[in-house]
Amino acid sequence: MATTDRQLATLALAHALNAAERGLPVIPLTAAKLPALRSPHPKGSARPACTGRCGRPGHGVHDATTDPTAVRALFAAAPHTAGYGIACGRGPHRLIGIDLDADAVGPAVRPDGHLGAQTDGALRQLALQHLFTIPPTLTVLTPGGGRHLWLTVPADVVVPSSASRLAPGVDVRGTGGYLIGPGSHTPYGSYRLAPGTANLPPAPCPRTLLRLLTPPVRPAGTAGTAEATGTAGHRPPRGLEQGEGLVHFVRAARAGERNTRLFWAACRAYEHGFGEALAPALTEAAVRAGLAAHEARATLASAARLTAGRSEAA
């Protein structure tokens, strides 16, 4: 017998109350994974930036709460609920999520959520490049074959959300965003806990990974220093050890991902001010991986155009 909308809403509320009891602030979501309550402010109103100060629900993640009475009220006001979201960056846990799509997960990730020694994919490459490991942590499997790794961060750290900034297929659910809670339903299936991780608490984010998630703001005027002093063609700028990891990342690309990896690595290099210095090494790495030299140069040029001005803005 098919599950009715009422049953989905009841199940979602039960899961949300369980999460709230564990100190995780929740909001109701639709089957499309969007906040289930509409904004109380009409489009074009004078209060487009209201984050709930008006006292009415309908402000997305700003409605998130751990108060069971308030949770019930939110869900009662949203009868078409099919799931729930968990606000990231909020106390007491300061939760964030590493969102791996099916390609980034790779075939060798163990069912318990650990990243095994043979794990393929962008996150493993990133971990090898920067010498960190993901500790055992609560992990949620998505209907599309991906997974969300739950981690916690210190109270004084703000982690921005991002899409494929760390690596292709690796997204970050940070402060101001939300994670889809296990038990939530979508037209493509349900979110569920990975076997063996249900009793694990969200692990603290490794320090090295945390630094990657919160890149320091560089002083204005530092971008392009090597080029300005005429040293870019002779030696790489300070900090270009990062570039070595980017080169290895491109060199390890397989068929079907060479252009994607090269473009991502080039964007990171240009954003950090050493794109021109690293371009020859990136080109060589892409060619070794099997990409034609003219394709590699075109991809690097596209990355340079896309990131123009970003390093100065940082």
Rank of each mutant, 00 (worst) to 15 (best):
residue 68 P to T: 03
residue 138 L to N: 06
residue 66 T to L: 04
residue 120 D to F: 12
residue 69 T to W: 02
residue 286 A to M: 03
residue 92 P to I: 07
residue 310 R to M: 09
residue 146 G to L: 13
residue 117 A to T: 05
residue 37 L to C: 02
residue 38 R to A: 15
residue 235 R to E: 02
residue 127 A to M: 12
residue 111 P to C: 01
residue 76 A to M: 09
residue 67 D to L: 07
residue 309 G to P: 03
residue 70 A to C: 02
residue 311 S to V: 01
residue 162 S to H: 08
residue 131 L to N: 08
residue 258 R to G: 01
residue 15 H to D: 07
residue 38 R to T: 14
residue 89 G to I: 15
residue 241 E to I: 11
residue 174 G to Y: 07
residue 60 G to T: 13
residue 267 C to W: 08
residue 282 L to W: 04
residue 122 A to W: 04
residue 232 A to L: 13
residue 12 A to Q: 12
residue 207 R to K: 02
residue 283 T to W: 01
residue 284 E to Y: 05
residue 90 R to W: 09
residue 80 H to T: 05
residue 204 P to Q: 03
residue 208 T to L: 01
residue 213 L to F: 06
residue 55 G to S: 03
residue 299 T to V: 15
residue 101 D to K: 06
residue 39 S to I: 05
residue 21 E to F: 13
residue 25 P to F: 13
residue 180 I to L: 13
residue 83 G to H: 07
residue 197 T to A: 12
residue 103 D to W: 10
residue 258 R to Y: 02
residue 67 D to T: 08
residue 54 C to I: 08
residue 172 V to H: 11
residue 36 A to G: 01
residue 174 G to K: 05
residue 32 A to G: 15
residue 79 P to G: 02
residue 245 G to R: 04
residue 305 R to E: 08
residue 212 L to W: 04
residue 276 E to L: 12
residue 16 A to L: 15
residue 155 A to K: 15
residue 292 A to S: 13
residue 248 H to Y: 09
residue 150 W to A: 13
residue 61 V to R: 09
residue 187 P to H: 02
residue 89 G to M: 14
residue 183 G to Q: 07
residue 225 T to E: 07
residue 103 D to F: 12
residue 171 D to G: 06
residue 271 E to I: 00
residue 91 G to W: 05
residue 43 K to A: 15
residue 311 S to R: 15
residue 7 Q to W: 09
residue 268 R to N: 06
residue 114 H to R: 11
residue 299 T to R: 09
